[in-house]
Design a protein around this nucleic acid. Sequence first.
DNA 1: CAAGGAATTTTGGTATACCAAATCTTCTTC
DNA 2: GAAGAAGATTTGGTATACCAAAATTCCTTG
Lengths: 223, 223
Amino acid sequence: MVDGTLPEQIATRLRRDILRGKLPPGAPVKERDHAAELGVSRTPMREAIRMLAKEGLVQLRPARSPIVAKPSFEDVAHNIEVMAALEVLSARLACQRASDAEIDEIAEVAGRMERDYDKLDRLDLFELDMSFHRAIARAAGNPVLDETHGALLARLWRARYLSASRKRSRDRVLRQHADIVTALRARDAVAAQTSVQAHLDHLLVNVVDVFDAEEAEPAPAEK
Amino acid sequence: MVDGTLPEQIATRLRRDILRGKLPPGAPVKERDHAAELGVSRTPMREAIRMLAKEGLVQLRPARSPIVAKPSFEDVAHNIEVMAALEVLSARLACQRASDAEIDEIAEVAGRMERDYDKLDRLDLFELDMSFHRAIARAAGNPVLDETHGALLARLWRARYLSASRKRSRDRVLRQHADIVTALRARDAVAAQTSVQAHLDHLLVNVVDVFDAEEAEPAPAEK
DNA sequence: CAAGGAATTTTGGTATACCAAATCTTCTTC
DNA sequence: GAAGAAGATTTGGTATACCAAAATTCCTTG
C-alpha cells in the first residue's frame, strides 16, 4: 500500500489513528492542527477528511470541527442489515456468474484462514476475514455491487475490528465460511444465500456482545 | 432547494448541465474554466467535481481532466441490480417498521403521480417517480439503507431521466406503484418484495429500449 | 516531407493568505 | 456576585499564487 496520492496517504494515516484509538470517538479533527502535524497543507488534509467522512469514520458538521464518529449500536446494526442484503445478492450472482477460478480464490482465503487461525494475530485475521467477504462481492461480477459493498465494509472497520477479537467464535466462523464455499462450488444459490445471511446474523450477535462489553468498560483506548 | 453551501450549489448547477446534455458524455470538466465561468474559485469547484464523481456523473482520472461519464448499458444494468436488492430490502423492512403515516406519504406520492400524470411534463414526472422510490427507502427506518439507496439513485439520474420519457409505459408504472402501496398497506412483505422487484425489472427493460434507441440516433444533445 | 525531440502551454496538485461566522473570554454593570 | 454584552480568538470556507507533470505544438533534422 505505497499509494501515491497525498490525500489518500493522509487518509490512511488518520484512519489508522482512529481505528487504533489514538483519536478516540468524539475527538475533534481540526484540519489546521493535523495538517501542521503531518507537515502538509490544509488542502489535501481537507480532502482526506472528506474521504473519511464518506467512510463514516468522521462526522462533518456545518460550521464546526469535524469529530471522530462514535457509531451507536443502531448505526452498526443498520450497516450490517444493508451489508447482509448486498452479500446475499453477491452470493446469488456469484453462483450464476463467478468463474471457477474466482470461487477457488474465495476458497483459498477461507482455507488460509482456517489453516493459520492460531498462528495469526487478530489484526491479520481481521484482514483475512475482510478479504473473504470482499472476494465474494467481487465474484458477483457487478462492479457497482463490489464498490458499494466495499464502502459499507469500510464503515464497519472499527466494529468488525473489535468483534474479530472474539476468538471464541472461531469454530462457528470457520464452519460458516466452509458452508459458503461449499454452496458456491455447488452453484447452489439458495444454500449460498442462506449461509451468507446466517454468517451476517452471527456477526450482528457478536457486535451486540462487543457493545455490551464496551458499556461495562467504557474506554478501551489503546494508545 | 435554496441550499447554502457553495460547493453543493456548484454541483447542482453542473449536474443540471450534464443531465440536460449541455455537457455531453466525454466532455472534459476543467476546474479552471468552469470555476471562472461561474465566478467562483477553484477550491469549491474542486469539491463540487468530487461530489459529482461520487455520484458517478463524472469520471476522475489520475493526472488528467475529469470527463463527463458515459455510462455503458452494463453500468446501468449493474446499478439497477443493486438498487433492486436495496429496494426489496426496503420494502420488506417497511412492512415491519414503517408507520402508517409513512405509508400514507408513499401512497400520496403515487396518488399525485396518477392524478396529474397527463398534466405534468416528463421532468416533473421523473422527480415524482424518484421521490416515490426515495420514500420507500426512507420508510424502512434504516438511515444507512436510505443513504446508500440515495447515492445509487443519483447515479441513475441520467438513465432514468431518459427512460422516464417513455410515456407508453404509463399504465404499467402506475399499476405497479399501486401494487406496491397495496402490499405495504397490508404489511405483506412477500407481496411488497415481489412488486418492487417486478417494478425494477421493468425499469431495466425500459433502459434497454432507451439504449437501443440511442444507438440508432447517437447524439440527442439538446443544447 | 516525415519523424523525433524540445519547448511551451495546459491542467491538476499543493501551499498560503484572507474572510466570515461561531465560540470563548473577559469586563462591565446591575 | 451573577449575568450579559462586546471583543478577541479559533475554525472552517474561499480565493489565489505557485509547482510539477503531461500533452500539444512547432521546429529541426535526416
